[in-house]
């Protein structure tokens, strides 16, 4: 399994499975199943440097919601890693949901990751990345035109 990380933590950084981590919540790295409640991490987010979320199959999309909650509402700023069914055709969605590191077995994944940020220059909805939704860009344009 190759690691593609923009955050730079080494691959050997040990993450505890959620049940074990709950007994040692000061540990700065945890891995969650996609049925584990991300809300439980809230009091410890300042200490956490790595959270790993799992896609048991690439078609099981629960970790997208977990990622958005962690990045968005809960304000997590450490490394957020996707593992499991991680394929290049979904990586653009993963980036938008706030993942910044990926474990994938797929050949060509690294190249696809590099291209993924420029695959879509227009997005319609806000997410956890810095792409501005079309509706906002339109408003900015019409405000600028009006002034």
């Amino acid at each position: 399994m190759a690691l593609y990380s923009e955050a730079g933590l080494p691959a050997s950084y040990v993450a505890l499975p959620f049940a074990d981590w709950k007994a040692r919540p000061q540990w700065p790295a945890v891995s969650l199943a996609n049925t584990d409640p991300v809300e439980d991490l809230a009091p410890h987010l300042g200490r956490l440097r790595l959270i790993i979320l799992e896609f048991p199959k690439f078609s099981d999309g629960r970790a997208y919601s977990q990622a958005r909650l962690l990045r968005g509402r809960m304000g997590y700023r450490g490394e957020l890693r996707a593992t499991g069914g991680v394929l290049q055709d979904q990586v653009a969605f993963m980036l938008r949901c706030g993942f910044d590191s990926f474990e994938s077995e797929q050949p060509g994944f690294g190249d696809a990751l590099a291209r993924a940020r420029t695959l879509f220059s227009v997005v319609y909805q806000p997410a956890e990345d810095d792409q501005v939704p079309a509706a906002h860009r339109r408003l900015q344009q019409s405000n600028a035109a009006a002034s």
Partner: peptide, 8 residues
């Protein structure tokens, strides 16, 4: 459309 959270 192409909602990143709700595609799967």
């Amino acid at each position: 459309t192409l909602h990143p959270e709700f595609t799967f």
